[in-house]
Design a protein around this nucleic acid. Sequence first.
DNA 1: GAGTTTGAAACT
DNA 2: CAGTTTCAAACTC
Length: 721
Amino acid sequence: MDVVSPELNSLLPDEIMDTEAIEDVPHPGSQLPISISSTSSGLQKLTAPFTISAANHQIILNKVASSQATEAAKSAGTPPQVIKQEGQKLLVTAIGKSGQPIVLQLPHTGNKPGISQTAADTKSPAPQFKVVTIGGRSDLKPVVGSVGNQVTTLQAQQLKTVQIAKKTPASSAAPIKFIITKTVNSKTLSPQTSVPPVIAGRVLTQSSPVIPPRTINLSEPHNTSIQSLPGKKIAISPLKTPSKVTVVSVASPTSNASQKSVALPVNVALGQQILTVQQSTSASPVKVATSQSANIKPVQSVAVGGVGGSQFKTIIPLATQPNVQQIQVPGSRFHYVRLVTATTASSTGQPSGPSTSSIQTAKPMVVSTGAVRMSVPIVPPQTMKQVAPKPLTSAAQVVTTTQTQQRLIMPATPLPQIQPNFTNLPPGTVLAPAPGGGNVGYAVVPAQYVTQLQQSPFVTLASSSSFPASAGIQTQARLPLNGLSAAETTSRPRKPCNCTKSQCLKLYCDCFANGEFCNNCNCNNCFNNLEHETERLKAIKTCLDRNPEAFKPKIGKGKEGEADRRHSKGCNCKRSGCLKNYCECYEAKIMCSSICKCIGCKNFEESPERKTLMHLADAAEVRVQQQTAAKTKLSSQISDLLMRTTPVVSSGGGRLPYTFVTKEVLEATCECLLEQAKKAEQTHQPRAEAERMILEEFGHCLMRIISSAGKAKADCASINC
DNA sequence: GAGTTTGAAACT
DNA sequence: CAGTTTCAAACTC
């Protein structure tokens, strides 16, 4: 799996950071650096931003789609240019509006000018091709199809396809965002099945017609390694962290053939591990990836969200494996997973041991497929303090099972006498087997604390999709939490509790009632933590004995939308008129229903008091929004001012307007350079001469920019702006 | 921040 | 199941 490295991210312009989809398939041993440039130093400098590094296996271009050069090449029907780069070939094409390949004629080196190198390349020993397709059409066909015959001729070779989809098919002058994806075709794969197309940052299709691609949101960690995590705990909170529960399945020696792999959205918050799924006990990582494509498996999409808001998606092939076990709770907004001890789960393709490389070369980040979408509501990173960020490229982020036994992610307490009722466990509960106890022992842990558990690079959780109502869970997982929208749940983190006498082990405690551990609370003598897991388990059991519905959401979600939301038990208010937050109905912003036993209720549709309150509340909300918007705008302006101080283009000793170097200017410059390269190519100029021409053009461009900027500055000064 | 009010949870 | 107590959040000053 390839993820844009933080280093590369830092170099990318914003539009690149806005990339929506980056796809790749693990392909160990094939990561070769490519660059859309010749090997000459001059061109390398010019094209440095386009370099595809082995570390991230990606290429990102910032170029308009309909340049004169490309259009001219398209009209001329020039075949895709193959640029030789240290033993591997790069097919540089572009998909124009017509769907025809657009040739980016770049000066190639070493070979005789004017001669297509495609034929020669096919004769090269152990050739590898990277097909770069720059496309602007929204209905782009798979890359393989677009390059058609050329790819077909290369079927017997390793083929890498880099597809660059234009995000906004606007005019050529508009900034264009490229989405670069790359897949690797196995020798045994046909192009039709192995290249998932990415259009405008989205995976259009995947091989499976039944199971849609799944999205995993990953919060991009920054600069902190896993080793710095205190306590080696990770926290996946259903309510606190901005992450979805990460569920990992492992191969089970007693796997049931009827069990399906489970596709689990993984949103890894800062410092959290990507819990991967490794089901195959025989296939190597490469085999897993290729077989998935060959067998028409769905694709796992991983969105890697950076702290700064950048997002990248990596498509992960999903394996259909029979060894995943998932515990699903009908009617519950949370899902439960069950650890299955893996004795034979392995990645035989990499017998050297655990994954120690980056995601790119890591063991397959195979998130199991299935109808169930394991998801935990996204919430603000309240628990982030406990979790140190971890770089995405860290090997530990990709958690895979190996031939070693599964490691537990938590100090599970074997309590066979406590067999939780799966349908009523606190939300977010994760069940884990006791060490050495197989599936016997369970530790009931809120999902939030999955991330606070011991960080093993081989954390694996097994889930079972064979649990009934999986489809319902899948749907429910997408529904708003507890009747609240995702935005509400994310923007309204639960308040810290202040319990003093209940030890946070009774439903008085909101944390406990929500199935969460206390975290950053103000409670005293708190037992709602891992250190008191035994007591907590007993308390949970007590609550469930008293009320099996204790941990279920009180506010149900009706079929018709918010109008049907109502309290499951109804309120019993007597003095508040159900118009204060004492009332659970009013607090949930729903009206009282017939099941309420309230006295003097004013929380009904026609209530004038209620309407007055609502109007006041709306006005207050609008005010808050306006204030927030004002703050945001101010912050943006401050940031903009800070940014403007960065560039120093000296002209007459003063600073030039930073905003003069716009994306359009950059794009135009690139156009000029490419045009010059094309010109050199067409005139069969030697490499040195081609470099000189391009460099000269670059100098001209710079001069024009400086001149224009200086003029603009002078004009601005003249009008005293 | 302290004190009061309130209603759900817990208890009898 | 009803009444009472406990509890913590909501609310007021």
